[in-house]
């Protein structure tokens, strides 16, 4: 087992969280959320990796003749990417409306809802 991809996934998630917590711009915050999500892609693909495995496409190789990487996690990653695209698009649309209504995208200046 290679440890590096798992460390990369953890690093990506925590970096994204750090960016979110310290963000001064909501567009940057939505980007940081996408960074957090890319940690899930890396982790899923790392989980499915097999030593010496090839792509799980059986058009030119005989099933069972050589190892392939796990196709399930690749399907999960694709679904995850679709989910991520939806979320990012919706959140960016909300940021656009915030910019129009509040005249700022700095979370430090959005303090109406509190207490």
């Amino acid at each position: 087992m290679h440890v590096l991809p798992y460390l990369v996934a953890a690093y990506l998630f925590l970096t994204g969280c750090y960016g979110l917590a310290t963000s001064r711009n909501l567009i940057h915050a939505v980007g940081c959320l996408a960074v957090c999500q890319s940690a899930t892609y890396v982790l899923l693909l790392a989980v499915g990796y097999r030593d010496g495995g090839t792509a799980p496409v059986f058009s030119d190789i005989r099933p069972g003749s050589r190892p392939v990487v796990d196709p399930v996690v690749q399907a999960l990653t694709l679904t995850d990417i679709v989910v991520g695209a939806t979320v990012t698009a919706l959140l960016l649309a909300l940021v656009l409306q915030i910019a129009k209504r509040h005249g700022t995208v700095d979370p430090d200046e959005l303090r109406e809802l509190r207490g």
């Binding site: 998630f13 899923l44 996690v73 979320v87």
Partner: peptide, 24 residues
Amino acid sequence: VQGALTFGIVNSLGAYALLLGIAL
């Protein structure tokens, strides 16, 4: 829109944590 964005960011982050757990 401000409340919806806060809701969106925090809940999506939670969902990604859930997915990391599922992957493990």
